[in-house]
């Protein structure tokens, strides 16, 4: 009965229902957003395990702080803002840990990131760029470009949504996207030459 009903609801309606105590609305939001959020966070962190944890934290936050949501912004914008902030904190933590790992590594320990079994970054995309190459280039991008590129190119969000998520003007979003694309292009060219 509920399954047929909930298809009609928008995200905002589901949050409203959850705010009134309907936990089924929360579960529906989880189903709608878990993979979208994972796609964004995975491209940002480049670690499946950590990304899943960040998505869990984001959805926990939704559970505990749903009352904070006001319908002045789209729900997707609100939830991506939470995920982006948590992913940023996680990346800082991972970078600190990686620095420590590299310092304590021997010559034989060149691989320190364990790739997920469920996901193969070696898989080629439709173009002549391999996913691994692209991910490597994304990882190298400065954070201000990296976030906008992922939100725009991978998540396909509008300039306006990105501007709301990051709290910057649309002009700045456009400028960062353009500069980010050029940087990414140059990085990939350099990777090919290597």
């Amino acid at each position: 009965m509920m399954d047929k009903e909930k298809i009609k609801f928008t995200d905002e309606e589901l949050v409203a229902r959850f705010q009134q105590g309907d936990e089924r609305a929360y579960i529906e939001l989880v189903k709608r957003y878990k993979d979208r959020l994972l796609n964004f966070v995975y491209r940002y962190l480049n670690s499946f395990e950590q990304s899943e944890d960040v998505v869990q934290d984001t959805l926990m936050k939704l559970y505990t702080s749903a009352h904070m949501y006001r319908e002045i912004a789209k729900f997707s914008t609100w939830i991506f803002t939470i995920a982006a902030n948590l992913a940023k904190s996680e990346l800082r933590r991972l970078k600190r840990r990686r620095v420590v790992s590299i310092h304590t590594m021997g010559y034989d320990d060149s691989e320190y990131e364990i790739p997920s079994e469920d996901f193969d970054p070696e898989k080629e995309t439709t173009s002549n760029y391999g996913e691994k190459q692209i991910q490597e280039a994304i990882d190298t991008l400065p954070d201000q470009f990296k976030t906008v590129i992922i939100l725009r190119e991978v998540q396909q969000l509008s300039y306006e949504e990105i501007s709301q998520i990051l709290g910057i003007s649309i002009g700045t979003v456009k400028s960062r996207i353009n500069r980010g694309r050029l940087r990414l292009q140059k990085l990939l060219k350099d990777l090919k030459v290597r």
Partner: peptide
């Protein structure tokens, strides 16, 4: 031409999915 190809590659990157026991 290169940029158009890159944007196309970014859009078609494989999408990871959460593990079955995620929920």
């Amino acid at each position: 031409g290169d940029m158009a190809q890159l944007l196309d590659a970014l859009r078609t990157l494989p999408k990871p999915v959460t593990r079955p026991d995620f929920e």
